[in-house]
Design a protein around this nucleic acid. Structure first.
Lengths: 223, 223
DNA sequence: TATGACTAACTCACCAGTTCGTACATTAGT
DNA sequence: ACTAATGTACGAACTGGTGAGTTAGTCATA
């Protein structure tokens, strides 16, 4: 979970001073705490206690609880943007490309439940931290560009019949992936089915791809 | 928002004693507060203050903050179950029936954003209140029974090619409807599109139906 | 129908433990 | 010598929860 490379400590007992490392460690622990308990439920003291530094450093580096949460969000969104940038589907036909893209979202959401929880939490707070962040305002989405290209290519060739734009298709793909992870607990409790059961994973992954492709390529009534 | 019939007050200054009304009023306000601020963010004192009764009554009737939230969830889930029970699609062909069902979910989610928020919050807490509730354990889902029947009928006639079961199809429908409302804020902030914009409503409603029907009726590779 | 016993419903005041944030002192590294 | 980085101690406001006492409505009975 830690994204910090811990350089060997020069002295036995105390750590060397290292702003970047301290900042990153706070961010790691804060991510876990906020994801675990929600914004209001997370305790600054608890975050500090689980760190090798003190609460004072949280205020020194981040200013306060709100800004700390914003920083946590910024990093979490950065991770998924980086993953999307790895995406290379130029060599695939539109159908395979869309499926690959959907699977990337599927995999990323599954592998980062903390990210999903943070997004849920931020929505409870009506995205006020995103609004307060300069970085997140212009983070963009590489996936969206990719979808745009695939969609244009598929629609041009007549393969894709649906008249969706990239943003809506992205919403469609995300909704399935997000729900599966975010609502795992209530869904499991109410319907007795674990949506994140590893044994079902491939089935859901295929279901997502089938769904999106079916939607894009369905025969439409000519109106 | 109030679900209480307020009988005329016999005396001018004080209210008559009415356990059911007091309980219901607490529940109404608590629903709003929990939905607004999350479980930890909601304040028992604030809930009490927005009530015409006192904090002591919350503890008198519900026992504590946790049980109050559980009671709020129980009522919220009861509302959607009741809505699902109104559903009558026996006279429709499978395609129209599924679309109608999906639209019911779409409409209900849109009309009850507080419910969506409560479910998000309960998932942050890993459904521990549902687990603690006897009522919610056996609340069931009328929609699930309906889906089962439609699915059986559609698959039998060969109209539906997809091999899904009712629970998974329910998840698929819910995911789209849920995401649209739950993630409205982050999605809007990041992609500049309001998923709950009334002007876009019909488009999304149709998109959901098209998606589900396309998935169910798509031509599958014979393997 | 007047009365008095009974209890559910309600009010008020208060507390013990938190919780975010900060003033102030100190130290490591350059 | 200077400054960025860090540690300690503390407090004001809050927060969930409760102890103790009060009142409105009901009902059995004379």
């Amino acid at each position: 979970m830690t994204s910090v490379d811990e350089p060997a400590r020069p002295h036995g007992n105390g750590r060397t001073r290292d702003a970047a490392r301290t900042r990153a460690e706070i961010l790691d622990v804060a991510t876990q705490e906020f994801a675990r308990a929600g914004y209001a439920g997370a305790r600054v003291d608890d975050i500090a206690a689980r760190t090798s530094t003190t609460k004072r450093m949280i205020y020194y580096y981040f200013g306060g609880k709100d800004q700390l949460f914003t920083a946590v969000l910024e990093r979490a969104y950065g991770v998924i943007r980086d993953a999307e940038q790895q995406l290379d589907v130029e060599h695939l036909d539109p159908v395979a490309a869309i499926r690959r893209l959907a699977e990337l979202t599927f995999d990323h959401h599954e592998q980062h439940p903390d990210f999903i929880r943070l997004v849920s939490i931020e929505n409870i707070h009506e995205a006020e931290h995103i609004a307060a962040s300069e970085k997140l305002g212009r983070i963009g989405s590489p996936a969206l560009d990719v979808i745009r290209r695939i969609l244009a290519s598929g629609q041009e060739s007549g393969l894709f019949t649906a008249e969706v734009d990239a943003v809506d298709l992205h919403a469609m793909i995300s909704s399935f992936c997000f729900f599966r992870v975010a609502n795992r607990h209530t869904f499991g409790a109410l319907f007795g089915r674990d949506l994140v059961d590893p044994a079902q994973r491939e089935r859901y992954r295929a279901m997502l791809g089938d769904m999106v492709i079916a939607y894009l390529t369905a025969e439409r009534a000519t109106d």
